[in-house]
Design a protein around this nucleic acid. Sequence first.
DNA 1: TAAATTCCCATGATATCCCATATGTTAACA
DNA 2: TGTTAACATATGGGATATCATGGGAATTTA
Lengths: 174, 174
Amino acid sequence: MFLSTSEHSADAKNRVSVPAGYREALRDDPYDAIYVLPHFDGPYLECGGEQFVQQYRMDIANLPRYDALRKDLEIAVIGAIRRLDFDSTGRVTLPRDFIDHAGIDGRCAFVGCDNHFQIWNADAHAARLRDVRSRLSARLADPAEAERMGGGTDLGSLLRNSESLAALLKGEKL
Amino acid sequence: MFLSTSEHSADAKNRVSVPAGYREALRDDPYDAIYVLPHFDGPYLECGGEQFVQQYRMDIANLPRYDALRKDLEIAVIGAIRRLDFDSTGRVTLPRDFIDHAGIDGRCAFVGCDNHFQIWNADAHAARLRDVRSRLSARLADPAEAERMGGGTDLGSLLRNSESLAALLKGEKL
DNA sequence: TAAATTCCCATGATATCCCATATGTTAACA
DNA sequence: TGTTAACATATGGGATATCATGGGAATTTA
């Protein structure tokens, strides 16, 4: 799991150290690398390991082969992702166009998002975090939204009550 | 798998270097070559290895033998694909009519699409990528479309992919 | 014989690898 | 409790290998 945020600097060769904790999460991957996508939805890089790419491949493969959405995703996702290999000290070199896309100039922020993480221009991320917080705060005022935010299954009660989950944990298929 | 996009130049002899990563993906093919199709859907070349051709053959073979669509596909796909062999440095020579079809003049973009890739005039692809990105970005704003692009994670896949969550559910301490 | 194609080698740019240094954190010990 | 040692992490710079690409020679085709 990719957790928490940390800032690192990109040097003259556009190298950045990937947080040690993130590298730990990639320990079992076949390549000593991360996959990086300049995201179509904003000035940031979406990153992850093998699972990150496979998830996108699956989403795309599940669409009809001549579907327009599928073709768009192939270009903007598969066509845009690059594998960046670690050097011996745990750094990757960011391609010039990736740096341009995210507006990275010196400091950049690594933001953990569970099964993937993002790389932002440090200042841009700080500003965004303020926005996100106030937006979430406002959402809580609306009961329907509050329900949506915390309406998921309660892990504790699930454990106490669910036989099918117990079966799943024993390795049985549902 | 063909991943990411890179630009290369076509020289005076109409030779282009195929990205090293793509050649790696073709390592196990019987021929040291790519199959190239001037696509009927736009000014670009659709390319791939052995699997790329076989997929088209299958699609066509599944149609009735006297079907009008089948006959069209036979002409526009099977009749149009050419095999281009690599030279010793990993380049292929593009036939004149292929260059005309894609409007290639100097720089061209190689776009990875998982099991195949495309070759575009570099400028044409840049313009198209902008279109695709804004279209996808707009789509995300619509919850129904966002759902189609990637539904929420189900508990099963979460369990399969997260050792620490599985451990937690089994009652172990983290 | 002319034109085009294929093969081979040379070069430059870029990315990759390796070692050295700095910084910060934990652990050990006085 | 203060000091030092050991370690892990982050960063900087130089050497090396890989890749893209240009040009010329050999071979084929018209």
